[in-house]
Simulated scan of single mutants.
Amino acid sequence: MTHTRSISFAFAIVIAASLHAPPASAVALRLNKATDDSVCDLTHDTNYVLGQRTLVPAVASSKDQIDAFFRLAGEFVATKCRNGQMLMLQGSSSLNTDVRSLTAVAEASCAIASITRTETTIAYGDRALPAFDLRCTILKHDELVSKLNELEKTDPMESLKARMAEAVRKAEGSAPTGPNAASKKDCGKVTLATILGGGSCK
Rank of each mutant, 00 (worst) to 15 (best):
T4A: 06
I7C: 07
A10Q: 13
A10W: 13
A16R: 09
A17V: 04
L19C: 08
L19H: 11
L19I: 07
A21L: 02
P23K: 05
P23Q: 05
A28E: 06
L29I: 10
N32Q: 12
K33D: 11
T35I: 04
D37V: 02
S38I: 04
S38K: 11
V39T: 08
D41F: 04
H44L: 02
V49Y: 10
L55P: 12
V56C: 02
V56E: 00
V59F: 01
A60C: 09
S61T: 14
Q65P: 13
Q65K: 15
I66S: 09
L72N: 15
G74K: 08
A78N: 11
T79D: 12
K80W: 14
C81P: 06
R82H: 14
G84A: 09
Q85E: 08
L89K: 03
S93A: 05
N96P: 01
N96W: 04
T97V: 11
D98A: 03
D98S: 07
S101E: 05
L102A: 06
S109W: 02
C110H: 00
T116K: 08
T121H: 02
I122Q: 03
I122K: 02
Y124P: 00
A128H: 10
A131V: 00
A131W: 00
F132A: 01
I138C: 01
I138Y: 02
L139M: 01
D142K: 12
S146T: 13
S146D: 15
E152A: 06
D155L: 05
S159N: 13
K161C: 10
K161I: 12
A162V: 08
R169W: 04
K170M: 11
E172R: 12
A175S: 13
A175N: 11
T177I: 05
D186W: 05
C187I: 09
C187V: 09
G188M: 07
G188F: 10
K189T: 14
V190Y: 10
T191M: 10
L192W: 15
A193M: 07
T194Q: 13
L196D: 10
G199W: 13
